[in-house]
């Protein structure tokens, strides 16, 4: 079985799917000859031609607007937004149009569009190449929102996204695009959307994260074990729909929970998770739910690693909650 990084796994997923289904078209900025600024779409134009791998003018609203039209026609478009920081010109199309199309047409139309977009910080990208905007889309009924953290899930979830008849915002944690490596089957397999994964079992505290932060979370869990704290680590993978059961089941066992995500804190996804935990597992809690997040500041350039949740900050919360 080949060992791929995230980029290779995603490229493999796209190629596999496009060979099988000629209704799949991909469109975005620099995705053709160049293969995307991160090379996720490398060599696809050569194989599938310029009708199915489309280099677009630089207008995110145009990319998503046109892709909505393509999906309504019956194609299976996959739109790439080069950095999720640049998704906002398409916000109206995504929130007011894409997300609501089936609902507002009374189910007459559906709009199965996948929006792939790299997100997150830690690559010296500053304000405009580092943001984690997932909460805006999680807050919008009608969208499914996912973020894999490893090559295996990346391929399996992209292929699963193509089975959905709903729009999917597919966030790709770009910091670990190349560093996360793993075995990826050459076959066409699926990783179910809506299922979290228990990455590491433990009885003392539940640690919940997703995307690039899974790297820090795993390291923190391993360090905690050196202190004798057994962490149960959950990778959410799918943010909408959310696997509430796996999360609550674990907290009922451990009675303690720390949530890690890198987006700003206020109204971030960790806040929603804490609310759900309080509603559904309050009587099992031995300590207040804790969160380690980015700060409520714009994403900084020089101090980005102080902004991002670190192993140290996660460990601190693990200690606090286990010693409450």
């Amino acid at each position: 079985m080949p060992v791929y990084n995230m980029i290779q796994a995603l490229n493999d997923a796209l190629r596999t799917a496009m060979r099988k289904n000629d209704r799949i078209v991909i469109l975005g900025e620099d995705i053709g000859k160049l293969g995307g600024v991160f090379r996720v779409t490398k060599d696809l134009m050569a194989e599938f031609g310029t009708d199915r791998v489309i280099d677009t003018p630089l207008a995110e609203g145009g990319i998503i607007g046109a892709a909505i039209g393509m999906a309504l026609y019956g194609l299976r478009p996959i739109a790439e937004i080069q950095f999720s920081d640049f998704i906002y010109p398409a916000f109206d199309q995504i929130v007011n149009e894409l997300a609501k199309y089936r609902y507002r047409s009374g189910g007459q139309y559906e709009c199965p569009l996948i929006i792939r977009t790299p997100s997150g910080g830690g690559i010296k990208g500053g304000l405009y190449h580092s943001q984690s905007p997932e909460a805006y889309f999680i807050h919008t009924p009608g969208l499914k929102v996912v973020m894999p953290s490893n090559p295996y899930d990346a391929k399996g979830m992209l292929l699963s996204s193509l089975d959905q008849n709903d729009p999917v915002v597919f966030f790709e944690p770009k910091r670990i695009y190349r560093s996360a490596k793993g075995e990826v089957p050459e076959t066409e397999y699926r990783v179910e959307i809506g299922k979290a994964q228990v990455v590491k079992q433990g009885k003392d505290v539940t640690l919940i994260s997703y995307g690039a932060m899974m790297t820090e979370a795993l390291e923190a869990a391993e360090k905690a074990l050196e202190e004798g704290i057994q962490v149960e680590l959950i990778d959410l993978r799918s943010l909408v729909p959310l696997d509430i059961e796996t999360m609550i089941h674990s907290i009922q066992k451990t009675g303690r929970v720390v949530i890690v995500n890198e987006a700003p804190r206020t109204c971030g996804f960790a806040a929603e998770l804490m609310a759900l935990i309080n509603e559904k597992a309050f009587l099992y809690l031995e300590a207040p739910p804790a969160r380690v997040t980015g700060f409520d500041t714009p994403f900084p350039y020089s101090l980005e690693h102080d902004y991002l949740p670190s192993v140290g900050r996660i460990l601190k919360e693990i200690y606090k909650t286990t010693h409450f």
Binding site: G65, G69, M70, Y73, G74, S105, Q108, Y109
Partner: peptide, 30 residues
């Protein structure tokens, strides 16, 4: 919205249907 008569779904934002109509016809061309 009236799919049977090839009428897409109407929304209130004034111009959002414009790039959608482009994508739709573009798909037909593809």
């Amino acid at each position: 919205a009236y799919k049977e008569g090839h009428i897409l779904s109407i929304s209130s934002p004034i111009g959002t249907q414009i790039p959608q109509a482009v994508g739709f016809a573009w798909a037909a061309k593809i």
